[in-house]
Amino acid sequence: MSGDHADATIAQRVRRLETLLEDKGVLSGARLDEIIDASLSGASPANGARVVARAWTDPEFKARLLADGTAAVRELGFMEGSYQRLRVVENTEATHNVIVCTLCSCYPLRLLGPSPSWYKSEAYRSRVVREPRAVLGEFGLDLPAGTEITVWDSSAETRYMVLPRRPDGTDGLTEEQLAALVTRNALIGTAAV
């Protein structure tokens, strides 16, 4: 089922479906192109990183972000018009949060962009709710034995994002420099900053 041949076959079938839908007057190619462009524009982990950097530098914003994630990120122009709710979960010295969707692949697309392949894999989805410490170890994140881990399994219309801990020795950095430190994995909870 894999390889270039299968890929060429499915690409042809997708094209054929597009033609069929256009011929039937269901969906024009131009409209489809518009929708593809719109869905990709502006969705990037840089958004989530910007939210985190703001929370690290503005305690009042951080309080609003943890109380009502959706409203707080709208202040920065994200998730406008989205029917989904954002819940931001904060990592501390004693607690660590990690996000998954065991049933499908729910993910905070607007703030993190399209998800990495591993997030959608059966291996990650099956294991992180059962043995999060071992899974985080595979990502190179070895937490102290006493750290309390919470796995957020997105099963409805809330999307979760992790607020990682601000690293030591970053007092002099600007918000922009701080945002540059925040990786996609840190926003999912499979890495620290």
């Binding site: 894999s121 990502f139 499979t190």
Partner: peptide, 11 residues
């Protein structure tokens, strides 16, 4: 969720 046998994660 909790199913065994999918192996290591390609991280």
């Amino acid at each position: 969720g909790g199913f065994e046998g999918f192996g290591a994660i390609d991280t």
